[in-house]
Every structure is written in C-alpha cells, then in structure tokens.
Design a binder for these strands. Structure first.
Lengths: 202, 202
DNA sequence: CACTCTGTTGATCAATTGATCAACAAGCGA
DNA sequence: TCGCTTGTTGATCAATTGATCAACAGAGTG
C-alpha cells in the first residue's frame, strides 16, 4: 500500500523463493524495456536491492539466460504434435485445436516481446526454436493435410504463410500495440478455412 | 585498405554530405544493434570522431529521430492506392502488383529491423504508420474486393491476416534470420489466390 | 540469552557513455 | 603567402551502470 514503486518484497525470503521472485520480475521487466534495461531498475521493480541480484545470478548475462530458459522451456507442448496426427479427429478440428493451443501458449505480453527482443538481438535459442516449429509442427501439419483425400500437401512456404498470418495477430497486439480482437478464435478459423480451401482448389 | 574498421571517410567533407554520411551510417548501425547502440560505435563505423556527431545532431535522440524520419518518410507511395483502385486492371493483378511494390519497399534489412526496434520501444510513429496502412491501404483493398462480382468484402481482421502472412516473410528473413525464398513473388501469389478464393467461397 | 547461519543492504569501484569545448587544420579568397 | 571560415579532433566532464564487499540483521538452535 505504499505509494512508492517496488519494495513490496518481504524483508527476508527463503533462497529459492527470492530467486523465483527476481526471475519473474526480470521476465516482466525485460519484456517491457528489452535486455538493455538496467539492473538497478529491475531491482527496484523486484523490490530488492541491486546488490541482491548478484547473490542469485552471477552476472546480468546469467540472469538474462535464466529468463530465456524459463521463457522457452516447455513452451512447445509435445502433446500438440500427437493431437495433430490424431486422425480420429477431423483435420479442420485438429488445425483449430492446435492453433488455439499454440496462440494460447505464446500470446502473452512477456513471451511475444521477449521473443522479439531476442530475435532482433540475434539470440541463437530464438532461431533454434523456430526451426523446431518448422520441423516438429508445420511439417507434420503439412503432411496431415496431404494425407487428406482431395487435398494437395502445401509447401513449407505455404505453411509459414498460414503460421505467420496467425502469429501476426500477437505481433500487432503486443509489439505494435494495435487493437486486436479479444478472442482471436474467429480469425484463426477464417484463416484456417481459407488455407484448407486453397489446398483443395489446386 | 587499412585493416581497421571504419575510418573510410574523407578528411574533410562539405557539411550536408557529412551529415548525410552520418545519417546513413546511423541507419545501418541502429538497424543492427538497436537504439541502445553507443555513439562511439556509430562514429567508428561512420569513420568519424564521436565528437563530430554532435556538430550535425544536437543529441543522440535528435539523431535517432532523423533516422526515423528518413526511414518512414515516403515509404508509403501514394500511387499504390491509385493503382489499387484502377479497375481497368483485374483485381488479382492489382493485389499482386501492390504487394510486389509494398514488399519491394519494406523488405530491406534496415527498414524491417528499425521498424521492429521502434515498435518494441513503443515509438509513436510506428503505431501511426500501421494505422495508415490499415486506413489507406487495407481498407481500400477490402472495398475493391467487395466491389468484385461474386466476392464478399473481407473484414479488416481478414485483411490483416493477408497482410501479416506476407509481411511475416520479411520478419523471418531479417529479424529471425531464417532462410526464405530469394524471390517471394510465388509466395505472395499463393497467399493472394488463397485469400481471393476464400472471399469467393463465403 | 548467546551463537551461528545466511539473507540483505549501503557504500564503492572501474568501465562505459552522452555531451562539451578549446585547439587544430584544410580549403579558399584577397 | 596571409588570414579567415569552418570542418574536425583529442581531451575531458558528469552521469550511468555492472559488479564487489564488508557490515548488518533476521531466524532458528542450544
């Protein structure tokens, strides 16, 4: 209830809890201002002293690395690909289910912005993540489309087009701060239907 | 032919030429490292002294502002919208012509990255630019599609989907540094055809 | 209460960085 | 060649910033 920013933290915390608190604050802070942000500002927002950061992280680089790991780790749910291949469910429903889950996982302020900051900075994890998206998600989806009677399997560039058109909603919302629909399900449905219709027409 | 970086500049240059040279170097430099880059690094790459920057720009903020203006100014060609409305040309050809010209204008290392850096930093020009894209380009395109017999006019969210899917090619190439086709014309054609087919099906 | 462990802090250092300024020097007209 | 204008530089300042460390303080134990 104090009017000042930060300094909300308890006076004394168990080591793992404090580390977790700092890490969470770092994710929120770096998402907002990028990795050029200062350790002093971060500490203020975490409600601790700047010196304390160095008890839990050996350097700023060490801290940002922890932010990366936390952000990337477990972001790609292995069940997604299983569900994509589950042919007991109609193809359209599988696509909608996947992109519902995928956007549900990545359409957050922290994820979208940290991913973009990292991409611009040339982070290697970023590049590797997207390669995995291509190999483990887009390629299997293309294969499933190709397995459907009457549908031509789309090229990877077409898959990227589907993917990019959907992800761009999050870019507009969290990076460009443009108004977007609260619920992006209808947009995903429309994009998916257009895409499937295109695979049929060829 | 000196092995060192930078210091290519002539010893003495006319004032406007030097300013132009610094501005060009700033665009290339900030595109690469973002606006957190230092004036010393920039000066080194421009081949001048750090102090000289302040003869042509009153502050770093003044310099970055000049970079913005140069980048944004004249990037939206007013002829594009005229050509979009030119109904003597088939609709599909108009769409392809527009996105050929549009991607030809923005798919550069400098533009894509500075635009993204600025977007993350919350630059106002960025937001305004995209609003103009929506009002002056996407909305008229939607209207032209709606004017075509047998086609339903797409909602703005659909237009953003078309747009985002195409722009995402540039994001992959210049921000994520992923491999993309040298010529993105086929991808644009495929995306456009899918989109128009979708407008027909409804 | 005294003791110990450890989470936390304020002070501080060295390097970086935006910005300034007096001094230098290249071109050019008289 | 002299002298003026102006493009250019090296030195330097003040503020910021990542990182360190001795000292402080809260909590549990005997």
């Amino acid at each position: 209830m104090d009017g000042t920013q930060g300094r909300i933290a308890a006076r004394r915390l168990a080591s793992p809890a404090r580390r977790e608190q700092i890490l969470e604050a770092a994710i929120a802070y770096f998402a907002e201002v990028g990795f050029g942000g200062t350790t002093r500002d971060l500490a203020r927002r975490a409600g601790v002293t700047q010196a304390l950061l160095y008890r839990y992280f050996s350097s700023k680089a060490d801290l940002t690395e922890a932010v990366f790991e936390r952000i990337y780790l477990g972001r790609l749910d292995p069940r997604w690909i299983e569900e994509i291949r589950d042919r007991s469910v109609p193809l359209r429903a599988r696509l909608l289910r996947f992109y519902g889950a995928y956007t549900g996982a990545i359409f957050t302020y922290e994820w979208m912005r940290i991913f973009m900051w990292a991409g611009l900075a040339g982070d290697a994890l970023n590049n590797r993540y997207l390669s995995r998206v291509a190999d483990s998600l887009l390629a299997p989806i293309a294969a499933e489309i190709g397995a459907e009677p009457g549908l031509t399997p789309p090229a990877m560039e077409d898959m990227w087009n589907l993917h990019g058109g959907i992800v761009y909603i999050g870019i507009r919302r969290f990076i460009y701060r443009l108004p977007t629909p609260d619920d992006c399900t209808p947009a995903i449905e429309a994009a998916t239907d257009r895409f499937l219709a295109g695979c049929r027409a060829t």
